[in-house]
Amino acid sequence: MINNCNQHGHYVITGGAGFLGSQLIAALQKNGDMTQCIVVDPSPPYPYDTIQFDRAFVTYKQEKFQEDRVLDSVLPNASTVFHLCSIGHTGKYGARCYQDEVYKINVEGTKNLIYKCRKYKVARFVYSSSVAVVFVGKPLHNVTEEMPYPEDHEFLDIYSKTKAEAEKFIISQSCPEFKTTCLRFRAIYGPQDSVVAEKVVNMVGMNFFRIKILRKSDETRSNMSSGRNCGLALHLANQALMEEEKPYGKAYFIHDGEEIQQYAVWTPLIKALGKQPPTFRCPYFLVSPFITLISFFCHEILKVSPPMTRFELEVLVTTNTYSIEAAKQDLGYRPTGNHFQQVVDYYRVDTKEKIEAHRPTAYLDYDDLIFILVLFFWTISLLWSSH
């Protein structure tokens, strides 16, 4: 049953042209909420063939949410803002030269969006956050939202630090006239998602999935968040903010409700791609300096995304699991299980063609990496000989 408050205004979704935004719109409509949505995103809407919704209820504005003129045009009469837009987790923005821009969008842009929401009397604000606001490379076992934020110097990258700062500000601004909620996702995946599933597909295609990187002898465990469950959680968070007796100004961990082994979970997909799961083991202490090297060359020199970031390495070799009991209790969140089989089924068909079609040009192939390594050691040898 949809609260009648939905009829009092439209929804605004920042960064909604991609995978998560599409899953949100699909979840809204699936659950009977046909409120008009205005999507603000500088990128055009991606034509997902695995996510279905009625586009007659969606208006796309190919604009940046940081611009006042854009907010002044979309926020009047809006009832809810779903803030999904952020940068720095993947792509070139991990480079140090872009840190100011990451901060400007993730923190200053969010603060300005909040101020504008208050100005135009938007009633509700739902933020797409991340477990990165608490994960700093140390083991976490079924942690709750009571866990305090790390110190600034502990964060693994600028993305994690800025997401935490934005989340703290959003929670601090929550009040009866402007209710906010933050949802902390962990590894949002699904068919056609470009950050998790397709990155694995590309890594398998480039033969980078041949070894297990382990800090200890046992394979680490974590949780993951399917796009479908994330969309459902965003919808439920909005519904909860409409009810007077429900809490607000809180953060919630959101995932599939299952623990997974961080390598074994991808075995069916790897086999569907015609490859064998990794059997060789490589100790963390050997890989860590390699990741530092590759990240430096990719980010600072080539200005492209490395095959694996420091955050991705640490979250892979460290057990990190999160409790969703608060989301179940406060939001009525009941995940529909994992959706790994849908990922396998999607990429199993026409495997070779799909690997090539989805292989992003921003990633490096095997020959590129060899060239980078040769160049690096050649440079080091020159510097050494000059002394």
Rank of each mutant, 00 (worst) to 15 (best):
G274V: 08
F253T: 01
S222T: 04
K275Q: 14
N238I: 06
T279D: 11
Y284S: 07
I254R: 01
R215S: 08
C230Q: 03
F209R: 04
K275H: 11
P268C: 02
F280L: 11
T267Q: 13
A233H: 04
D256C: 05
P283V: 03
L236K: 04
R215L: 07
R210G: 14
P278E: 06
K216L: 07
K246I: 10
I260A: 05
L241I: 15
L269K: 00
P283G: 05
E244Y: 13
E243S: 15
G249T: 04
L214A: 07
A251V: 07
I254S: 00
S226D: 06
E259M: 05
N223L: 00
P289E: 09
W266N: 01
F209K: 06
L236R: 10
K216A: 11
L214Q: 09
L273Y: 04
R228C: 11
D218C: 09
S217F: 08
Y248L: 05
R221T: 10
S226Q: 05
Q276S: 14
A251I: 04
L286Y: 14
F208I: 13
M242P: 14
Y252Q: 03
F290M: 09
P289M: 09
P278A: 11
Q239R: 12
P247D: 12
K271Y: 02
F290R: 02
H235W: 12
K212H: 07
S225F: 00
Y263N: 05
E243V: 15
P277W: 00
L241Q: 11
E244M: 11
S217A: 10
Q276H: 14
L236C: 08
F280T: 13
H255C: 03
N229P: 14
P268R: 02
K275E: 12
R281S: 14
K246V: 07
A251C: 11
G257C: 08
H235K: 11
Q276I: 15
A240F: 08
P247L: 13
E245H: 15
K246R: 15
L269D: 00
N207G: 11
T279K: 09
R281H: 06
M242N: 15
W266K: 00
R210W: 12
P277R: 04
K275D: 08
A237W: 01
A272C: 10
L236P: 02
R228L: 15
